[in-house]
Design a protein around this nucleic acid. Structure first.
Lengths: 134, 134
DNA sequence: CGGAATCCACGCGGATACTG
DNA sequence: CAGTATCCGCGTGGATTCCG
């Protein structure tokens, strides 16, 4: 994750916006971050195994790494219950909850416009065929 | 990009939001997409070489691939001037311009909260040290 | 149950050289 | 100028195994 950060920061002349964005971008570039955050937004609080079922298709490794990074960045709160068998709950921190708003904006856009996007792909595919045959 | 898509779509039981998000998420996961979009938001219209300088640090390969994918998804308009030497202009489509709003929301959040995030990392680092030494 | 550790495949993306 | 093509390193992330 730090590798991505370093690289993006190489070009500071491209505007402060991009530089600042790199951290969040690096976070959501981690494939599962958005899905995990989305799960916590919808379900409010989840334990490890519940989360794995909710997100679906994620390996323990990736779930652990993703949660750890989110916790490390102050977006997710981790609560350990010293029972046996052990139990760990995850929930969004106040900071994480503020992120859910702009994130939701992006997800909403995605839902509203994905048909437009797939339609654009269809048109593009046809155009490419014509252009090639000329 | 389709690989990510296929994988995410494996778990449709996790909620329609995640499934729908996967397309946009897959797009912005492409390392340069956000920077390219950001450049087009700020500069409105750019030709290939201008874009490469504006984004900074991007290779021809990645610039071409990123632009092609954005065009394919109907977010970027590509205009070729059949002059010599050739000239190609890129600009956002109406669809692409609507994406800039939620995207900006995310970038703004990033700028406003990245100090909070790095502070959270500091705190987390200390806590980890104590927990380990026990 | 909730991880940590190890191994490894594959695809992203960088560097370079060539083309219309 | 605006790409395309090729090669390849390296990091991301999946599968499996073991631990408290």
């Amino acid at each position: 994750m730090s590798a991505t950060n370093k690289l993006v920061r190489t070009e500071e002349h491209s505007g402060a916006t991009c530089v600042a964005a790199s951290e969040v971008v690096a976070l959501i570039r981690d494939k599962w971050t958005i899905l995990v955050l989305g799960a916590l937004v919808r379900k409010d609080s989840l334990r490890y195994s519940e989360m794995q079922r909710t997100v679906g298709g994620i390996s323990q490794r990736m779930l652990t790494l993703t949660l750890k990074r989110l916790e490390e960045n102050g977006l997710v709160k981790r609560t350990i219950f010293p029972t046996v068998p052990p139990r760990v709950d995850y929930e969004l921190t106040p900071l994480g909850r503020t992120l859910s708003k702009p994130l939701k904006g992006l997800l909403d856009w995605s839902m509203e416009n994905r048909t437009a996007m797939s339609e654009a792909r269809r048109v593009y595919a046809k155009g490419a065929k014509k252009a090639t045959s000329r």
